[in-house]
């Protein structure tokens, strides 16, 4: 789509707000609708939009497939790691109350971390799936 100037300009204007919105949804999920699942999908949608407009090759330079693959595992490990951390601090698995001195504070930290893990995994899986389908055609 190299010659579609309107699409390219519109995409350039749209992609930064989409990424920003994904981060907002990620970290504001405790207070309003949102959370890791939605944020991951929106983030991946921004990258996929970039790949559709500017070509998969350039998208591969922005988010290399190896990095995406690393993040697929990293998000899940972060989630599971929070559980292990809460065991080491003397609580049950995935019991966030022990992560800080105060119960609600600890819960807040725990939810933030695991939502981040969920978001990272979902975004990376969606990007990996897209690369899989896009790379097959060429």
């Amino acid at each position: 789509m190299k010659h579609h100037r309107i699409l390219r300009v519109a995409a350039k204007l749209l992609i930064p707000p989409i990424l920003l919105f994904a981060l907002y949804v990620q970290f504001h999920g405790d207070f309003g609708p949102g959370g890791g699942f939605q944020a991951g999908v929106i983030f991946a949608a921004a990258i996929i939009l970039y790949a559709l407009i500017f070509g998969v090759e350039r998208a591969r330079q922005v988010v290399p497939p190896s990095v995406a693959l690393f993040l697929v595992a990293a998000g899940l490990l972060l989630y599971a790691g929070v559980g292990v951390a809460s065991i080491l601090l003397g609580g049950n698995y995935l019991d966030y109350s022990v992560l800080a001195h105060e119960q609600t504070h600890g819960q807040h930290i725990g939810i933030l971390l695991i939502e981040l893990g969920v978001g990272v995994t979902v975004a990376a899986v969606m990007i990996t799936i897209f690369y899989g389908f896009a790379g097959r055609g060429s």
Partner: peptide
Amino acid sequence: EVGVPNIVTSVLAS
């Protein structure tokens, strides 16, 4: 117990 306004998030994550 969780202190998060969005109940869906607190049930989902905690």
